[in-house]
Simulated scan of single mutants.
Amino acid sequence: MKRIDLHTHSAYSDDADFAVSDLLMMAKAAEVSVLAVTDHNSARSVEGAIRYGKTNGVSVMTGIEIDCSFEGNNYHLLGYGFRRDSRDFDAVEQNFHQLERAATPLKLSKLRALGFHFDEERLYAMAGDRIPQEEEMAELILDDERNANHALLLPYRAGNARSDMPLINFFWDFFGRGKPCHVTVDLPPMAEMAALIIDNGGIPVIAHIGANVKEKHLSVIEQMRPLGVQGVEVFSSYHDEALRHALYQYTLDNSLLATCGSDFHGKNKPNIALGSSQPWPHAAPYTQEILERVTLY
């Protein structure tokens, strides 16, 4: 059975660690035969992924993961198989960085209001030429001795309930919608982003719906279908077996693509390995139908 991973992140994503060249070497080591690098709001990995894919014997599919809005909530939309020479996604990246740059001081203010201590200069130094990410904020806060006995941080300390992936868990618990440090940004509508992907010859696929909503997943997807969505990421690190079964059956019943992806980042998500979230053996042929609809390099 082919091992494919259609949801991975390189250092072009502000919250991921590995250069594109390293990511392709890791894919080879994990015996992944088809990889999509789906950086957040950026398609800058495309040419490097294709080049290093050839070096490592890994087929590459063009990819991106776009932050967008639908019915007042934030979601992630994966785009696959778009033209490798497209420059339309540059504007998506520029817009997102402007939004994040404006939101960062508000996030830091909300963290201070909770009594968290952190060195802001060090935060920006850690980020370098990138925009500081919530996981970097979490890392600084958890490492700062002044926060050692802060009650809100106890779940993220070793051996406690949220310590398995403390940085991303901190992000979800404090910056998610309705959480104390959430800052609303005006993300582009999902309909516009789906159209952009399609206009560039690509396929829009809903990413890890289980990470975005906790209930009525199929109802949410049903509302998204008229936007031009053509697939659902069924096999995800964030989906338990019950949700995988429900999503898989939904894609079968509605002639949608079913895809699989790990959402590999590196240290921010240490429990997620590249090449994980593979389909069940009987579902593998169906999840590989997307490979027949895109150009593999």
Rank of each mutant, 00 (worst) to 15 (best):
A113D: 04
R112V: 11
I131H: 06
D90T: 13
S86V: 01
L142N: 05
G176N: 09
N95E: 11
E100F: 06
Y80L: 07
N169C: 12
D67I: 01
I64D: 00
L99Y: 08
E100N: 11
T62W: 08
G57R: 07
C181E: 12
K110R: 06
D88N: 13
F116I: 01
R122M: 10
I168R: 04
G115M: 02
G128E: 04
Y75K: 07
N169S: 11
A138L: 08
L154S: 15
N160Y: 12
N56M: 11
L78D: 00
V183W: 02
L111I: 11
L106S: 09
L140D: 10
D90S: 15
A148L: 09
R83Q: 11
G63I: 02
K107P: 00
L108Q: 12
R87T: 10
T184I: 14
E139K: 14
I131L: 07
S69T: 09
L187A: 14
A127R: 01
D164Q: 04
Q94S: 08
L154P: 11
P166L: 03
A125G: 11
D129L: 06
F118G: 15
F170Q: 08
L106M: 05
P105H: 03
F174S: 06
E136C: 02
R157M: 15
W172A: 05
I168V: 13
Y80D: 00
L152P: 10
L167V: 12
M126R: 13
L106Y: 03
F175V: 09
L111W: 01
R83D: 13
D88Q: 14
I131P: 00
Q98G: 14
G81Q: 08
E135G: 01
L99F: 04
D144F: 00
F118N: 14
S59N: 04
M165T: 10
D90V: 12
P180R: 02
D173E: 13
I64M: 10
C68E: 00
P166C: 06
V185Q: 07
Y124R: 10
A148Y: 10
A158Y: 08
R87P: 01
Y52W: 07
L187P: 13
A148E: 15
N56Q: 10
A138W: 02
A125E: 12
N73L: 02
E135H: 02
D129M: 12
H182F: 12
L111N: 14
L167K: 12
I131Y: 08
T62A: 09
I66F: 09
C181P: 06
F171C: 08
Y52R: 02
D164N: 08
D67T: 14
G79W: 06
D164S: 05
K54R: 09
N95S: 09
K179W: 03
V58K: 04
A151H: 14
R101V: 12
L106C: 09
L108M: 13
